[in-house]
Design a protein around this nucleic acid. Structure first.
Length: 511
RNA sequence: GGCCCGUUCGUCUAUCGGUUAGGACACCAGAUUUUCAUUCUGGUAAGAGGGGUUCGACUCCCCUACGGGCUACCA
């Protein structure tokens, strides 16, 4: 019998969700959707010292924005609630006691200092293995070295303790990874990881294995940084007697810095000027604001498409994939093994593709939204016209406003380069005549604007090309922009003549 | 240091023993656009190094180099 697919995204609320986390969640989600399985959100908040208020809400909102729907778990509920690990404490206690009873785990009373001393000692004698484990545990203060009576006395006396896994010596531990194949590790190189901390909270390793088992998780898809501890997890499944229910593992390649080497970090993103978080995040302690992908103008479908291709590809030459197409094409087998450097240029390209593919109305809404912020009124009809003129030149929604500002606000300054190079007697004579000629043109279409200009230049015997830059600048203030004749049509004769006349007066004065 | 993972154009990647090593982003050039952008056409550019295995290796094996991850009572 094939187990139904149940995957989980299990972030810890220690800060804002990172863009790499979004990709991990995405891959989990794609597998779930493709197989008709279940996508679960579990909050791994077992480190009470690192809890950050608002982080959990941020995670949930981020996934929502990205279109990654949670079927079960924190925020939506489900048959295995609670989905916040801090609320599952008794479960871990019960299970770790089972491990103690079967002698797969033990109590340890060592202080931080004692552990450090042990490491330093082993280092000084040249030992390559300085771990708390097979080779050192009998020299430490734990229930293995102390014996049952003394252990009980210490516990009863209130001595703080942790519970550690008792890793068996001389065993080959095999992790079968869907991406990396078989990874074999000798148990002697593993350490006796802490399973339960002295505050009674489980560590990641315990909580993860217990919850994945209890929640009937079929696939553990997570970052490669977990690969080194996967053997311990395999061992825990064995110790619990859950080998047959063990999920399949898939350790994802990491997202790397764009330049140089190393894991992608917030620092890199800040340095290179791109977001690292899906949504804007205000650090609750430093109040530092980190602009998110959403606020920077990235479309969720573009970001998802971009992210999906960082480490995965469909094997065809198609690059633009909707979420539904990703769901159909996704496969774990086609995930690469090597880390992927994060190249924001490609994200820009995806965003541009998606913006262009939007309907007239949607594009107009982007512009209208910006205009509303500026308190500028504009009909949808006009907004569509302007967006049509601009659509081939935008990457982000706000570009419609940024690049089309002159449609609403007459220029008060003019491009210096154009003025110094193209603003001459010929230009002035054409603009003067053109402005006058336009006065009679009603209605003014792009064709009429063009014909009128041709007539003027022909009469004056001046090539149109020589004065076009000057004309554009007088109307828009800039040196480049959408088709000038369409721009003139949108602006209308009255506005255009007003602007040309203003430029003629102002620029002459400047000169 | 130890353990583990990885290594094809600048970047993301295709290739699952036989290809002129393909595509995309970026970049460069030309054409179109009387601007810029768009669009179109073309171009520069890659199998880390060394050994094997094989009739034949980017592809399989080994070594080296390089890169990365982990090495917490953090996840």
């Amino acid at each position: 019998m094939i187990k139904p697919v149940r995957v989980r995204f299990a972030p810890s609320p220690t800060g804002a969700l990172h863009i790499g986390g979004v990709r991990t969640a995405l891959y989990n989600f794609l597998l779930a959707r493709q197989t008709g399985g279940t996508m679960i959100l579990r909050i791994e908040d077992t480190d009470q010292t690192r809890f950050v208020p608002g982080a959990e809400e941020f995670i949930i909102e981020s996934l929502q924005w990205a279109g990654i729907k949670i079927d079960e778990g924190q925020g939506v509920g489900g048959p295995y609630a609670p989905y916040r690990q801090s609320e599952r404490k008794p479960l871990y206690k019960k299970h770790v006691e089972q491990l103690i009873a079967s002698e797969k785990a033990y109590y340890a009373f060592d202080t931080e200092q004692e552990i450090e001393d042990m490491r330093n000692h082993l280092k000084s004698v040249g030992s390559s293995n300085q771990q708390y484990g097979i080779h050192s545990r009998l020299q430490m203060k734990n229930s293995l070295s102390l014996g049952g009576d003394e252990t009980q006395q210490l516990i009863d006396g209130g001595t703080p303790y942790v519970i550690r896994a008792k890793v068996e010596a001389g065993k080959e531990v095999v992790v079968n990874d869907l991406i990396r194949g078989t990874v074999t590790v000798l148990s002697d190189t593993l350490d006796d990881k802490v399973l339960m901390k002295s505050d009674g909270m489980p560590t990641y390793h315990l909580a993860n294995v217990v919850d994945d088992y209890l929640m009937k998780i079929s696939h553990v898809i997570r970052g490669e940084e977990w690969l080194p501890s996967a053997p311990l997890h395999v061992l825990l499944y064995q110790y619990f007697g859950w080998e047959n229910e063990m999920p399949q593992f898939a350790h994802l390649p990491l997202l790397l810095k764009p330049d140089g080497n190393g894991k992608l970090s917030k620092r890199d993103a800040d340095k290179m000027g791109f977001p690292i978080f899906p949504l804007t995040w205000i650090d609750p302690t430093t109040k530092e604001v980190a602009v998110g992908y959403r606020e920077a103008g990235y479309l969720p479908e573009a970001l998802i498409n971009f992210l999906a291709f960082l480490g995965w590809n469909p094997g065809t030459e198609q690059e633009i994939f909707s979420m539904d197409e990703l769901i159909k094409s996704f496969s774990i087998e086609r995930i690469g093994k090597a880390g992927a450097k994060f190249d924001i240029q490609k994200a820009h390209w995806f965003n541009q593709q998606y913006i262009r593919a939007k309907s007239d109305e949607e594009q107009a809404n982007y512009l209208l939204a910006s205009l509303a912020q500026e308190n500028i009124l504009c009909s949808q009809e006009l907004a569509i016209k302007i967006c049509n003129a601009l659509k081939e030149r935008v990457t982000f929604p706000q570009d419609f406003w940024l690049q089309g500002k002159f449609f609403f606000v007459a220029p008060t300054s003019f491009d210096q380069q154009v003025i110094s190079k193209k603003w001459n007697a010929e230009a002035v004579s054409v603009l003067t005549a053109y402005s006058a000629a336009l006065n009679n043109a009603n209605p003014l279409t792009a064709d009429i604007a063009k014909a009128t200009l041709d007539t003027v230049t022909t009469e004056l015997g001046i090539g149109t090309g020589k004065i076009l830059q000057a004309l554009r600048t007088s109307i828009t203030g800039g040196a480049s922009g959408p088709d000038l004749m369409i721009t003139i049509e949108i602006l209308g004769a009255a506005e255009v003549t007003k602007r040309i006349n203003y430029a003629l007066q102002t620029i002459d004065i400047i000169k």
